[in-house]
Design a protein around this nucleic acid. Structure first.
Length: 590
RNA sequence: CGGGGUGUAGCGCAGCUUGGUAGCGCACUCGCUUUGGGAGCGAGGGGCCGCAGGUUCAAAUCCUGUCACCCCGACCA
């Protein structure tokens, strides 16, 4: 198969589109791969389709390779199906909703858990039918509040999603590993530099959840990597090293201090350091890290409108990371408490809140693990203008639980080996997740065991962002001249450039080489336009086909030029060897 | 939802302050020349100046309203 620039439906742009910021977005537009239709909604042109189909092919091959079977569900779904799982309400504004002519409610599916589960439930009923893995490559719709970066975060996007169905925990572990291994092969073949990081399991339960992230500054996910061991985690799921627990009796008794006009941590610390007879911490002076900050939040069950107050305690030198908390509370919503919420709990004195009275107020109190058992803090005394020192966890207050709440900082210590952690951004390429039995329980998905008793199925959930992968590969491989596709997904194997506007000898030679390569199964993009060499060179670099063959002035001496798009290496080869040389390049694994 | 910005030819932009009937570059069509790094000259085609209302003899330009889009943040199974 070969493509010809003269007839290919593509127009490259010399200028960057004004509305694109992210490099991959700019180049995909300029190269004529995609065009914007609406925010987060894009058309795919022939070159883009070629890359997209290649990504899909790799994904299919690897999914088929682990015995997963392809199905295809509709994107258009009646309300009842999402009503059954409670997500018609829970999804909120993120769902595209519409009506049919009879005014019945429909939605465009943001994800397909319900359909996979219901299909298996309706078709299978015996333990003999399991284990089973199903997958589909489907368009998903999510009405994102703010789509961005072209196809990196769209409102319409293609995703490969699959589910495994097993009878036992061991079976689930095996299915999970098979998917995880398949994902490693997929992302390697797609040419990614990627990391596998621990992710949040969420309230769906389940024991294991890992994300495949492509490190890049434009990524929306933040993750940490240990500089020493192989620990890596999404910041939503990270566990950092915490101080050892202490013994409560080490500390003096609680001491209430007059601290007028100290509503902020900074003013409090200044005041503490000015009290002469107050025992100083080991560091000599009080710092924000010696104080316990209590942040008032509220939580709400999805689909309800009743908020409940929640107080989270963190060291005063740390911020509460609301995003990290949301991940752990999912699907329960978490938000900052507002003045109206404070009004419902008169016991809370803003600026002077301490955990000592929260149990009496029946307000749930969680602390970050850095607030270790037996540790002593300066915190609010629940009276305006007063703080308390030597407030000890386990002696003066007992939290209802621990939750990773502090904003992770570069240099925080690894919970496994104590070495510094490094923070980076990445694009989420894929997610593997042991759902467990909770979902199957909701839908009553069981199989009859050999003893005639029903067994609840345990499930795994696995996703790959297919359209996102196209943008992510582009983002990781592009350079200042343009795109730079890995061979496996490039729209062609070789870009042949006759470096002349219309020289008949040069064009004839380009045609001959194209025809020969085509017979050998090489995918050729031939620039047969009557355009000047500079235009063709620039476009060949913009479009990013991995190998470029230039037929031009050297032809008189019997040579053509072979270039490697990525490395920029160029060498002359005898025209008689051109086909063989290109073939060698194309077949060289990289 | 909060903050900032922008809507003029397919793309990138100027014109708006100080109203006078729309312009530049690229792209596109034709001719000649050129031919290994986005060629030159000449001749062309292409515009509900986001939309609606208002002021005015006259509105891309001034006023009011409205819509859309982009960026940052919040949010994101």
């Amino acid at each position: 198969m070969s493509l010809r620039m003269s007839t290919l439906f593509v127009r490259t742009l010399r200028d960057d589109p004004a509305d694109a910021e992210v490099p991959s977005h700019r180049l995909l537009i300029r190269g004529g791969y995609i065009r914007r239709i609406a925010p987060g909604v894009y058309s795919w042109l022939p070159l883009g389709m070629a890359v997209l189909r290649n990504v899909e092919r790799v994904v299919r091959e690897e999914m088929d390779g682990i015995g997963a079977q392809e199905v295809h569900f509709p994107a258009l779904i009646p309300r009842e199906i999402f009503e059954a799982s409670g997500r018609w309400a829970a999804y909120g504004d993120g769902l595209f909703r519409l009506h049919d002519r009879k005014n019945a409610d429909y939605l465009l599916a943001p994800t397909h858990e319900e359909l996979f589960t219901l299909l298996v439930k309706s078709e299978l009923s015996s333990y003999k039918d399991f284990p089973l893995s199903l997958y589909q490559i489907q368009t998903k719709y999510r009405d994102e509040a703010r789509p961005r970066a072209g196809i990196l975060r769209g409102r319409e996007f293609i995703m490969k999603d699959s589910y495994s169905f097993d009878l036992t925990d061991e079976g689930l572990a095996a299915s999970y590993k098979a998917h995880r291994d398949a994902y490693e092969r997929i992302f390697t073949r797609l040419g990614f530099d990627y990391r596998i990081v621990f992710a949040v399991s969420g309230a769906m339960g389940g024991s294991a959840s890992e994300e495949f992230l492509a490190p890049t500054p434009v990524g929306e996910d933040t993750f940490v990597q240990c500089t020493n061991c192989d620990y890596a985690a999404n910041t939503e799921a990270v566990e950092i090293a915490v101080p050892l627990p202490m013994t409560a009796t080490e500390h003096p008794a609680q001491l209430v201090l007059d601290t007028p006009d100290t509503p902020t941590i900074a003013t409090l610390v200044d005041r503490l350091n000015s009290i002469d007879d107050l025992p100083r911490p080991a560091a000599g002076q009080f710092s924000a890290a010696d104080t316990l900050k209590n942040v008032v939040l509220k939580t709400r069950m999805p689909g309800t409108d009743k908020w409940q107050l929640l107080v989270v305690g963190v060291p005063g030198d740390r911020e509460v990371d609301l995003k990290r908390l949301s991940g752990q509370f999912e699907p329960v919503e978490v938000a900052q408490a507002e003045p109206a919420d404070f009004a419902t709990a008169p016991g809370l004195v803003k600026g002077y809140i301490g955990p000592q009275i929260l149990a009496d107020l029946e307000i749930r109190y969680l602390v970050d693990p850095t607030v270790t058992n037996g540790s002593a803090w300066v915190t609010g005394a629940n009276v305006a203008g007063k703080h308390a020192a030597f407030v000890v966890r386990g002696r003066d207050f007992t939290p209802d639980g621990e939750i990773g709440a502090v904003e992770i900082r570069d240099g925080d210590r690894c919970s496994r080996c104590g070495s510094p952690l490094q923070i980076s951004n990445g694009i989420e390429l894929g997610h593997v997740f042991q759902l467990g039995r909770k979902y199957a329980e909701v839908f009553g998905l069981t199989a009859l065991g050999p003893d005639g008793k029903p067994v609840t199925i345990t499930m795994g959930s696995y996703g790959v962002g297919v359209t996102r992968a196209v943008a992510a590969v582009a983002e990781q491989t592009l350079d200042e001249r343009g795109l730079c596709w890995p061979r496996e997904i490039a729209p062609a194997d070789v870009h042949i450039v006759p470096a002349h506007k219309n020289d008949t000898v040069i064009f004839a030679e380009a045609e001959r080489i194209t025809a020969e390569l085509e017979v050998l199964g090489v995918r050729v993009l031939l620039d047969d336009r009557k355009a000047s060499p500079g235009v063709k060179f620039a476009d060949s670099e913009l479009l990013g086909v991995p190998t470029i063959l230039i037929i031009g002035r050297g032809l008189a001496d019997g040579v053509v030029e072979l270039r490697d798009r990525r490395t920029g290496d160029r060498r002359d080869v005898p025209v008689a060897d051109a086909v063989a040389e290109v073939l060698a390049e194309v077949r060289t694994p990289r």
